[in-house]
């Protein structure tokens, strides 16, 4: 187990370097002078442009810039934005927003997804199953931003049930955006659980358990659920990471100052340091989520042993 974990962590290093370098190179390759973007539509004298280029190492070759950046990053210094704000402090206020949003979405998809999935799986082929299956297909089919706008206008503006936008009202502000963000994954979770339950219902161990005369709820909870939820754990684990990077659309509609918005603005103004800073952290979250999921897998399924 230890050796496996260490090997996995070592394997992360090339992945981390690869992803951050690709993003850095892509932002670097974005045309245009980020410094000019600072002045909006007004002219900037050459002397000012020269001074700022020097300050932000913009005239170095790509690899040198990247190396300088990474060397600092590993000491916890992700550099400065072109507005002179440190990237760490620029992100400081943004992480909690996205993290909370993703968490609400995640809990929602976990609770609602598993419930619906189990329900449908146990009633496979019946009416409930068909309704749930149809409903989840529909959720996947309607684009997230359409759902988001409809929800905002109906539940926020017209019926005034939820705050329209922003994060001023604490956790309450996160409910509606969280549900919208989680709905897409909810559909996947529900379907995954449903299939898994349906498959396991016919497994030999289930027949044995029933034959032993165990009470029905015990069969379902102890045997069926435990075995059926293994693939769901994988999905949910990895999904927490993708929820965070996928929050962009929802953040835009609901005016939440999260990292998704930060990234969008940073790309538009070619703030390389900010984009790479966010990427690095997102990739790290993704990699560790994967690792934890794999380790958890071994715990949940005794047949799997890591050497």
């Amino acid at each position: 187990m230890w050796r496996y974990t260490v090997r996995r962590i070592l394997q992360m290093i090339p992945v981390l370097i690869g992803t951050t370098f690709i993003i850095y190179a892509m932002v670097f390759a974005l045309p245009g002078d980020p410094i000019q973007a600072l002045a909006g539509s007004k002219p900037l004298p050459q002397s000012v442009i020269n001074a700022l280029h020097e300050r932000y190492n913009l005239d170095d070759p790509l690899v040198v810039q990247y190396a300088k950046y990474m060397a600092n990053a590993f000491q916890g210094d992700f550099g400065e934005t072109f507005y002179g704000q440190s990237v760490t402090s620029a992100l400081e206020s943004r992480w909690p927003v996205t993290l909370k949003l993703a968490l609400v979405a995640w809990v929602f998809e976990l609770v609602a997804g598993v419930t619906l999935g189990v329900w449908a799986g146990l009633r496979r082929g019946k009416f409930t199953d068909r309704v749930i299956l149809g409903g989840t297909t529909l959720i996947i089919a309607v684009p997230t931003f359409v759902v988001a706008y409809s929800a905002q206008l109906l539940l926020g503006v017209k019926w005034d049930i939820f705050p329209v936008a922003g994060t001023q009202e604490g956790w309450v502000s996160y409910i509606l955006p969280g549900i919208v963000l989680g709905s897409f994954s909810l559909a996947f979770v529900a379907r995954l659980v449903r299939t898994s339950i349906a498959e396991n219902l016919r497994a030999d161990y289930m027949r044995t358990a029933r034959a032993k005369g165990l009470p029905k709820h015990r069969v379902v909870v102890r045997h069926l659920l435990r075995n059926s939820l293994i693939p769901v754990v994988t999905y949910l684990g990895v999904d927490l990471g993708s929820l965070m990077s996928g929050a962009l659309v929802v953040e835009a509609v609901f005016n939440m100052p999260g990292i998704g918005q930060g990234i969008f603005q940073a790309v538009q103004t070619k703030q390389g340091t900010l984009v790479v800073g966010v990427t690095t952290i997102l990739v790290l979250i993704y990699l560790f989520a994967n690792l934890i999921v794999d380790l958890l897998y071994g715990v949940l399924d005794p047949r799997i042993r890591y050497e």
Binding site: L30, S245, L248, I263, V275, T279, L282, V283
Partner: peptide, 12 residues
């Protein structure tokens, strides 16, 4: 796989 999808597409 590790590259956040929307981010990559956005930049390119």
């Amino acid at each position: 796989f590790g590259l956040p999808f929307i981010l990559g597409a956005l930049v390119v």
